[in-house]
Nucleic acid binder design. Structure first.
Lengths: 336, 336
DNA sequence: TGATTTTACGAAAACGTTTTCTTGATTTTT
DNA sequence: AAAAATCAAGAAAACGTTTTCGTAAAATCA
């Protein structure tokens, strides 16, 4: 720890601690000349204020927390990027926590944040989250809380999401218009809001075009890559296999590509694919992947901006912002 | 902020603040029975200790900082993943800072960390870093500091890197053995250690196989995607264009793919490509991309472990660890 | 039984800021 | 010239912990 503090500085200057403190904070109580002297000495001794003493006294941490399921994921990496941009602009620090899709991790992380370590929390729920006690508890302490992308469906709280229902609908419609008659849907945990909305869109599109809905075509994948591969392989190996796949998350589309390579299923001739994805190389894949691309960076930016409005109390106390951004459907070879 | 503190807890229990504190820290000075009562009450009132008061008093932040150029990058995302794993295991918090390859950002970030906000720092330098004053200054405050991947070449400090020289050599050798006679090298800033080593490996491989070295074939790219595309396009559009490309970073290989698509240059028939990359979809690209893949997750893990050994003073004071991990060369269609 | 040790707890200082309250000196107003 | 206001600074409390030190009461020992 830096051992040069206000006391040392004040001794060096022949001033009191409080005067030095005020000078550094540009208080009107201190003369211009003294301020200049103090600033110069602080610079000379490379004084850095102790953030803990400051936070303790002011009851402000100048820090926010971001809680996400994983980081090695294009969507979340971009979202973090957006969050960091806003935070840096505001002079805030960012604590990052990964839940690895584990509810217990999420719970304990949130619990730790109740001690006042941060001024606000941004969170995207993990796939196993089936209770929101920990979240209401955090909310009750008065810490501003914003959910993004994966939000709780039964809690009144500020959220930043995309038009998931519409996107699910359009993606499915796109496959139908391309000629698919039997479309499978690869989803994550049904506990997740995004799963629910995207799958609803899928189902309603099937309804609209009078295609048979088969619950067996909705595959709920888990967090283990190997078993997902097995599930998908089983699905695509059947004689009455689907002729289209709508994947609600990027990694399941990747897995589908691997399976198709393995069992020599031709995309898009034998099976068409579209997926939610923020893969920068989507257009370079063989074949290029049709995607619904979420504005991940903007989601991060908007979430952080909203959080800071709440922190700075610029938002009305009784108002709950629900921001919805639009994803874009990009047609490529995999669904032609 | 949580308003339930030790004082409140002690009043509720009819004990002194110090006794409650000791009970919570399982001190031998407190009877088993009292401890039980205290724990129960703390649980009941959902007591969370104030981290700032604690850090101020103990001169420990239980927090580390990670400073990286960008997060929307497979390598860094995986490294962070590894770092977080170790940190979480140790019960530490992780502050993340992005420099966006901007030296001024790096400087100011490092300066802010000198106030004792963190117990240790993990950093991967940005492409513009041409001075290490800010780093030596941080080091002088006694805060443990570990560099990973992009390390300073003229500073005696603990580092975690990969065998970049060897990898550059082998990648180039691989292209030569595949039949390339004229190999270009796409690099980042020459200020970076990784650039230097990877390019040296490339040059020595050319020497070993008696291929002409042409400085014009070493393209130093910058941080602007559009201008990199232009540079690469110019390189590949010449009549005497190279027949092989060794890219020292993933994004430049991606750009090369885009350019080849645009100017109808066939990979690998007309031009072979190999690149440093942690792209999970490398094998799904058209054509699949040959890569040198760094153990990014392990780099993060090792860096964090090393940092914690330093923080816990388990390392000898006068010892400077230099850990070197091995990358793997994965041959795929782009270099066949 | 008297002396010593152990047990279980409390008082108070310390960590480095920020901020409120004083205060002496100077300037401005009556 | 006296009164009021302003200025520039210092003293001290407060933020919520942790930790050192002190001390009654109980337990152990000689």
């Amino acid at each position: 720890m830096s051992s040069i503090n206000l006391k040392r500085l004040s001794e060096e200057l022949g001033l009191s601690i409080s005067s030095v403190s005020k000078a550094l904070r540009d208080s009107y109580e201190i003369s211009a000349e003294t301020k200049k002297r103090v600033l110069a000495m602080a610079e000379k001794l490379n004084y850095q204020p102790n953030p803990f003493a400051s936070s303790l006294r002011r009851k402000k941490s100048i820090t926010i927390a971001v809680v996400i399921p994983e980081i090695a994921n294009n969507f979340f990496a971009l979202a973090i990027d957006g969050i960091q941009m806003v935070a840096q602009q505001k002079g805030y620090h960012v604590l990052t926590y990964l839940t690895h899709e584990n509810f217990t991790n999420e719970e304990s992380t949130i619990k730790h944040l109740q001690g006042g370590r941060v001024d606000g929390v941004l969170i995207s729920l993990c796939r196993d989250t089936d209770s929101i006690k920990h979240l209401t508890s955090l909310h009750d302490t008065g810490i501003p809380l914003v959910f993004f992308d994966r939000v709780p469906e039964i809690m009144d709280c500020p959220t930043v999401t995309t038009d998931d229902y519409d996107s699910g609908f359009k993606a499915t419609e796109h496959l139908i218009k391309a000629g698919c008659k039997k479309i499978a849907c690869l989803s994550l945990s049904s506990l997740l809001s995004i799963t629910h909305k995207r799958v609803s869109g899928y189902q309603d599109a099937l309804k609209k075009y009078k295609l048979k809905e088969d619950p067996k075509l909705i595959i709920e994948c888990n967090n283990d890559n190997a078993s997902n591969l097995a599930l998908i392989k089983k699905l695509l190996s059947k004689k009455d296999r689907p002729d289209g796949v709508f994947s609600t998350v990027e990694k399941l589309a990747i897995s589908t590509y691997y399976v198709c390579n393995e069992i020599k299923l031709k995309i898009p001739q034998q099976i068409r694919i579209i997926s939610f994805s923020n893969l920068r190389t989507a257009s370079l894949l063989a074949p290029s992947l049709s995607t619904i691309t979420q504005p991940a960076f903007e989601i991060g930016k908007e979430s952080a901006s909203l959080l800071f409005r709440m922190i700075e109390k610029k938002t009305f106390g009784n108002r709950i912002d629900k921001i919805v951004l639009k994803s874009s459907l990009i047609e490529r070879a995999s669904s032609k």
